[in-house]
Design a binder for these strands. Structure first.
Length: 515
DNA sequence: AAAAAAT
């Protein structure tokens, strides 16, 4: 197998790689690094979790190791769709430039210009930016892009989703024609295809799929849930969420809870906190310092529940998320894949549970068509509780109203009851499915042989106490990131996509929709 | 229908 040491990387970069605990490149790294080092353009079709970031940072650092940047004229440029991703790339550069004297600046919105200006003025080798802030600097005449030797576009399909493509095209136009371009996208939508045809020249095409996207090391489940009354849907969903969390017990060391709307992110986070769960929100309306702080806390394990909008759905690398809860069914099927991909990373086991209300069933169908699998139905734990009532539950009910009142006024605008006809069928199905699907380890074992492995692995991880877990997570972070290394805490040595690749992931989204 | 990103 290829080793990093076979790849012609700068010795000081190799040293940093070794110190980070990596030996062998992932498939995307093995595929992209050699042509990048030769100065060729690269078109990488890959998602995060494949070691994509290192596949451009390592050759870039090697290429930039010689020479120095002039004032206001960065020598390279990395564009990312979100601030958090940009920050993550910046960290990656720090890791691998440890033994070199390269300078970098992170240009993202939500923070002051001043520091960024100072750095640019001094001259930086690497500029890592979100498009808006980069252009802002450019327009103020603070930045000259005519000395850019290497330009990277990361997560291009997400840039497309977010309407950044015009900005990207403009930035391409500001850099010299002779630059080297490294371009990464999870899919090749027609618009992406067009951009690459326009701005890349004879690129080396490297394509890999993420490991285990919706396959065996992520246990999935969905609760079909219908509120007792439409105006109680929010509070009842929150109660259901708490039960789902409680039901997982110690197996749930930490979790991301996704909501479709920013207001619901706030409401759910607040409600969880009220009930004593260690939760904090993250979404684009919160100020950057808070976003950074929250994410940092979640990464290091001091925050257990991250309640998030889709700002956190893609690309975020927190290697040890045990659970993903989809409080809402995402309305774009592909977002489901991205969201649950936050767990089960680096070969670990993960659990992804979703709450589906009747009006979301259409979206659920879309998701199941996309992943070409039925998501197992989980019995509603609240229904079970009703069948054999306990004193504790009625207490929950009473206190359940408290956070609801506070938030009602805020939500009132968004709820016009559009649901009229989606009821009986859902009820029937709910009863039906509840009978067949139990998502606990025992039930799983009977279902499929390949799942036994997971069930036993799970038992092992369940005995980790949450107090000891914090330091354990920290230690694991390095080996998880970039996924090049041996994942020591785990007997599955996963490199790159590993052995299980669902066939649908190799298709374009258009092809997947077509079935 | 909503989220993200420049203010």
């Amino acid at each position: 197998m290829t080793k990093f040491s076979d790849l012609n990387l700068n010795p000081k970069v190799l040293k940093a790689i070794e110190e980070a605990g990596y030996e062998s490149p992932t498939p995307i790294q093995a595929g992209a690094i050699p042509p990048a080092l030769e100065g060729r353009d690269v078109l990488g079709i890959a998602q995060t979790g494949t070691g994509k970031t290192a596949s451009f940072t390592l050759p870039m650092i090697t290429l930039l190791a010689r020479g120095r940047a002039r004032a206001r004229m960065p020598r390279s440029l990395v564009l990312c769709p979100t601030r958090e991703l940009a920050a993550q790339v910046a960290e990656n550069f720090d890791t691998y430039t440890k033994h070199l004297k390269l300078t970098k600046a992170l240009l993202i919105g939500g923070v002051s210009f001043k520091e960024q200006d100072t750095l640019i003025d001094k001259g930086v080798d690497v500029l890592i930016a979100t498009p808006g802030r980069l252009l802002d600097h450019f327009e103020r005449g603070k930045l000259i892009l005519s000395d850019v030797k290497v330009m990277v576009v990361d997560e291009a399909d997400r840039m497309l989703d977010m309407g950044f493509i015009p900005d990207i095209e403009r930035i391409f136009g500001l850099t010299p024609f002779t630059r080297q371009t490294l371009f990464f996208s999870a899919t090749m939508a027609p618009e992406i295809e067009r951009i690459t045809n326009t701005f890349l020249s004879a690129p080396e095409r490297v394509e890999v799929a993420r490991q285990a996207t919706t396959s065996e090391n992520i246990t999935q489940g969905v609760v079909l849930f219908k509120a007792s009354r439409r105006d109680r849907e929010g509070s009842e969903k929150r109660k259901l969420l708490r039960h789902l969390i409680d039901q997982e017990g110690e197996k749930c060391t930490n979790a991301i809870i996704f909501c479709n709307r920013k207001t619901d992110v706030d409401i759910v986070a607040k409600s969880l906190k009220k009930y004593g769960y260690d939760a904090a929100p993250i979404h684009g309306d919160l100020d950057q310092s808070q976003r950074t702080k929250t994410l940092e806390g979640f990464r290091e394990g001091s925050l257990r529940f991250l309640v998030a909008s889709d700002v956190a759905a893609r690309g975020l690398d927190v290697p040890s998320v045990s659970h993903v809860f989809n409080f809402d069914v995402p309305s774009h099927a592909e977002d489901y894949v991205h969201r649950i991909g936050r767990t089960g990373r680096a070969g670990r086991d993960g659990t992804a549970m979703m709450i589906c209300v009747p009006k979301d069933e259409k979206n659920l169908e879309d998701i199941e068509r996309l992943v070409q699998n039925e998501i197992p139905r989980i019995e509603n734990p609240l229904k079970k509780a009703k069948a054999e009532p306990k004193a504790k539950d009625s207490k929950d009910d009473a206190s359940g109203e408290a956070p609801e009142r506070k938030t009602r006024s805020r939500r009132s605008s968004s709820r016009s009851s559009a649901a009229k006809d989606v009821n009986e069928a859902a009820d029937a199905q709910q009863a039906n499915d509840a009978a067949t699907a139990e998502v606990d380890a025992t039930a799983q074992e009977q279902k499929a042989p390949e799942q036994e492995k997971r069930a036993s692995g799970r038992g092992k991880s369940a005995e980790t106490k949450s107090s000891g877990q914090k330091s354990g997570q920290k230690g694991n972070q390095k080996s998880g990131r970039g996924r090049g290394g041996n994942d020591r805490g785990n007997d599955r040595n996963v490199v790159g996509m590993g052995d299980h690749m669902p066939s649908f992931i190799a298709l374009s989204f258009a092809e997947r929709r077509a079935g």
